[in-house]
Design a binder for these strands. Structure first.
Length: 772
RNA sequence: UGGGGCGUCGUCUAACGGCAGGACGCGGGACUUUGGAUCCUUGCGGUGUAGGUUCGAAUCCUACCGCCCCAGCCA
């Protein structure tokens, strides 16, 4: 029931472009978990993305264990990961890899880097390395070992591999850029010594590659085309590229980053999840309260619901926080179709049906499925003289709108007769122990009208069962962002699991085996625990509650509407500390350092340019050069300035202007034609795009592409008529008051003319034509 | 603070100079032997701020504001 067609996202756009340009002819992605913990819902997003891309583009997705750190990685995790990915419904076929498969090749490439003088063995201690690295403001200092000879480095590296040095004695480092503002590039570590046994390679290695070195190589060896990771690796992309550019690899993958998943009331950091397990705050990695795939599986989530959730939330680069309600929605949507309905009473009150013959039992054929699911099937449901109902379905003094039982009121027993509460029996503490109710069977004319239906179980045939009510793990929405200073563990929800041992279920449920989904009517979706369910003794895990408009109303009524006063985004309160150095200040500095630029600035102001344009044009030599050169060909300073500032800079996208095919004469010619009305602004931009791309002259491009502006009233009139005829709906909506549609219709007309029609005139003609 | 990213309904996400759309949520309605199933909904609600360019700006230019990431021998 996966919904609709696949949503567009920025990664799909990149792939589309790569396929179209021929950069790639197929798509190969990978999901590269480190086997140092169990997979969680955040990984599910990545799995669905990577495998989904491969599926949709007819490519392949590799499963790769990123096992470069033997100290934290274990075989148990490797198996769990494989199990979870395949349970989610994805197949990697033959394409199972391990980073450790490539250790020898990685080593050889490292030797190559040393030979090329691009890597060295460093003996600085970790503390010293950190110290030498500098800060974001100050550059790094070179390690005293940075310049030793290739031969010495080769010898040392060989001995590192041979196990001659203890852990931490030395590392292999790349010769990066010590002054780089990107800290990751300041001589990144490539190899460290770890005399630990590796789950796959055992003791054959005692040096292990670092992520930043290993990952790009793994991608290249596997011929990955699109290497997709999360946002926090953006800074690592520079080393990713460095490694691939400095080693002879068989392919050239590229890294793209997307926003990782965040959801409320849980944590998704492996460190914290591990701590929850180790310190026994939960019963293990597969505890149903855990956000792990294993935990969700045991709780009763389905792969379909999780996949659907991942489709629903999309993929983008903005940090986001997904409402857990979306997951619950996906769960209910899926579970509705696969969960037969039954009844169970969690907190029973006995009800005596007054007048019911002592040993009379009627069998009810109760449907397993509601009408909308439309599946056949019933289960036998016996009704005798005593039943149990839910304690919360009775109120001595019902609040307004209460549709359940209260003294003198009547309800229908689900699938059964109507009952009216005539007598309430209590114990000495005042607790209700029994209700005596009149029964109205069949179409009894005297039956009271009822508004509510409640669930029940027959007292004589009820079966005791254990019910585990799972709730959100934490009691605050963002335990990771808690600023109260409390330890995050104190934020655990004390009621994240409530075990109900006195629950009573209808007899048909007694035979349920492990791993079955049911809906306990009016209570929620449940799953028989796959580990603890015994023959005849089901254990029910609550997967998710049902939507509950009454509970919602009740809560709202109870809490006196806390009129949420949100601190209005403090309007430009200049309390804000100095922003980062802006481009203006950068340009001002450039002018201060270079008198020629400063002189230009004054001259441009004298030419009549705005201060802003003059500023932008004089921040760098090349921008001003282009402006001046174009100006010498065509003398309208403001027009040239406008095109340089607003259009050329946009087209350049921060690249130096010298990388553009555009020359000053081309630009000047273009601006001249626009000013003269030979071509429209729109066409002008089209011409500029080609000039930037391929160079040439504006006149030639205009003639070749036939972009000369059409100003002829008759031709434009015909065009307008045609557009009006072609879009009757839009015209009607425009006339009904949707003014925004004038833009749409103008656009349609201009587009139909191939960008040649004079847009002002088109718009005016349209407006006039539609006014009548 | 140097650098790298990101700001669109309450939340998530589209729109690539031309109708701000979808989903969850919220509200309203239908139906009802699940208040909680299910269905309908032309209902609510948004382009961080301020300028500029353009016939037309969420989109291009400029400035400002805010948030995230980077100084592990983790990944």
């Amino acid at each position: 029931m996966s919904t609709a067609e696949t949503k567009s996202n920025f990664i799909r756009q990149i792939i589309d472009a790569d396929l179209e340009s021929g950069r790639h002819t197929r798509v190969v992605t990978r999901f590269p978990p480190e086997p140092n913990g169990y997979l969680h819902i955040g990984h599910a997003k990545s799995i669905c993305l990577n495998f989904g891309l491969a599926r949709d583009y007819g490519g392949t997705c590799h499963l790769r264990m990123d096992d470069t750190n033997p100290e934290t990685e274990e075989e148990e995790y490797i198996e769990a990961i494989k199990n979870d990915v395949s349970w989610l419904g994805f197949e990697w076929g033959e394409k199972l890899f391990h980073a450790s498969d490539f250790f020898e090749q990685m080593y050889q490439l490292a030797v190559g880097l040393i030979r090329d003088g691009k890597a060295y063995v460093d003996h600085l201690t970790p503390e010293e390395i950190s110290e030498y690295r500098g800060t974001v403001r100050e550059p790094a200092r070179p390690s005293p070992y940075r310049d030793r000879s290739v031969d010495e480095n080769l010898d040392l590296f060989t001995r590192m591999r041979a196990g001659e040095f203890p852990d931490g004695h030395c590392v292999l480092r790349a010769k990066g850029d010590l002054a780089s503002p990107n800290m990751k590039l300041r001589d990144p570590l490539l190899y460290r010594i770890r005399k630990a046994s590796h789950p796959r390679t055992g003791d054959t290695w005692c040096i292990y590659p670092m992520y930043d070195y290993a990952h790009p190589l793994e991608d290249a060896f596997e011929h990955i085309t699109h290497s997709i990771c999360t946002l926090e690796f953006e800074n690592n992309r520079d080393i990713y590229d460095w490694v691939l550019d400095n080693t002879p690899v068989p392919a050239r993958p590229h890294q793209y980053e997307f926003a990782r998943l965040n959801v409320g009331y849980t944590v998704l950091s492996k460190r914290k999840l591990l701590q929850l397990v180790n310190e026994k705050h939960v019963a293990g990695w597969d505890d149903p309260r855990m956000p792990t795939i294993a935990g969700m599986r045991r709780r009763g989530f389905t792969p379909e619901a999780i996949r659907n959730f991942c489709d629903l939330i999309g993929v983008a680069k903005a940090n986001s926080f997904v409402d857990i309600g979306k997951l619950e929605f996906c769960l209910r949507e899926d579970l509705n179709l696969r969960s037969p309905r039954y009844m169970a009473v969690l907190d029973p009150i006995e009800v005596e049906l007054v007048g019911w013959a002592a040993d009379r039992v009627t069998m009810i054929d109760a449907p397993l499925w509601p009408e909308d699911v439309g599946r056949p099937g019933t289960r036998p449901l016996p009704l005798g003289g005593r039943v149990f109902i839910e304690r919360e379905d009775f109120e001595q003094t019902p609040p307004k709108g209460f549709k359940r039982l209260s003294p003198g009121a009547a309800v229908r027993l689900r699938y059964g007769p109507v009952i009216r509460c005539d007598e309430v029996l209590r114990d000495e503490t005042g607790r209700v122990v029994k209700l005596r109710c009149a029964v109205f069977e069949g179409d009894a004319a005297e039956a009271p009208r009822v508004e509510g239906t409640i669930h029940w179980v027959p007292a004589h045939a009820a079966v005791p069962a254990e019910v585990r009510l799972y709730d959100r793990l934490f009691s605050v929405e963002k335990p990771d962002a808690d600023t109260s200073g409390r330890d995050w563990l104190t934020l655990l929800n004390p009621e994240n699991l409530v075990v109900v041992r006195g629950a009573l279920v209808e007899p048909a449920l007694a035979a349920l085996g492990p791993g079955q989904h049911v809906q306990l009517e009016r209570t929620g979706y449940f799953y028989t625990d796959p580990k603890d369910t015994r023959p005849g003794a089901p254990v029910f895990n609550r997967v998710v509650t049902l939507r509950d408009s009454w509970a919602k109303r009740a809560t709202v009524a109870a809490s006196p509407a806390p009129s949420v006063v949100r601190p209005a985004a403090t309007a430009a309160a200049d309390t804000g500390k100095a922003a980062r150095k802006s481009r203006t200040t950068l340009r001002a500095e450039a002018r201060a350092a270079e008198p020629a630029l400063a002189a230009r600035y004054d001259r441009y102001l004298a030419l009549g340019l705005s201060a802003e344009d003059a500023d932008v044009l004089t921040g760098a030599q090349d921008v001003g050069d282009l402006f001046e050169a174009a100006l010498s060909v065509y003398g309208n300073a403001t027009s040239i300035a406008r095109w340089v500032v607003n259009e050329v800079l946009g087209a350049a996208k921060d690249a130096p202007l010298s990388t553009l095919a555009l020359d000053a004469a081309g630009l000047a010619g273009l601006v001249r034609m626009v000013d003269a009305g030979d071509i429209s602004n729109l066409a002008g931009k089209e011409v500029l795009a080609e000039l930037v791309e391929k160079g040439g002259t504006a006149v030639e491009i205009v003639e070749r592409r036939g972009l000369r502006q059409v100003n002829d009233a008759a031709a434009l009139g015909a065009l307008v008529e045609a557009v009006i005829a072609a879009h009757p709906d839009h015209v009607a909506r425009y006339k009904a008051g949707n003014a925004g549609l004038l833009g749409f219709l103008t656009g349609a007309a201009v587009r139909q003319s191939g960008g040649k029609a004079n847009p002002q005139q088109v718009r005016a003609l349209l407006e006039a034509a539609l006014a009548g």
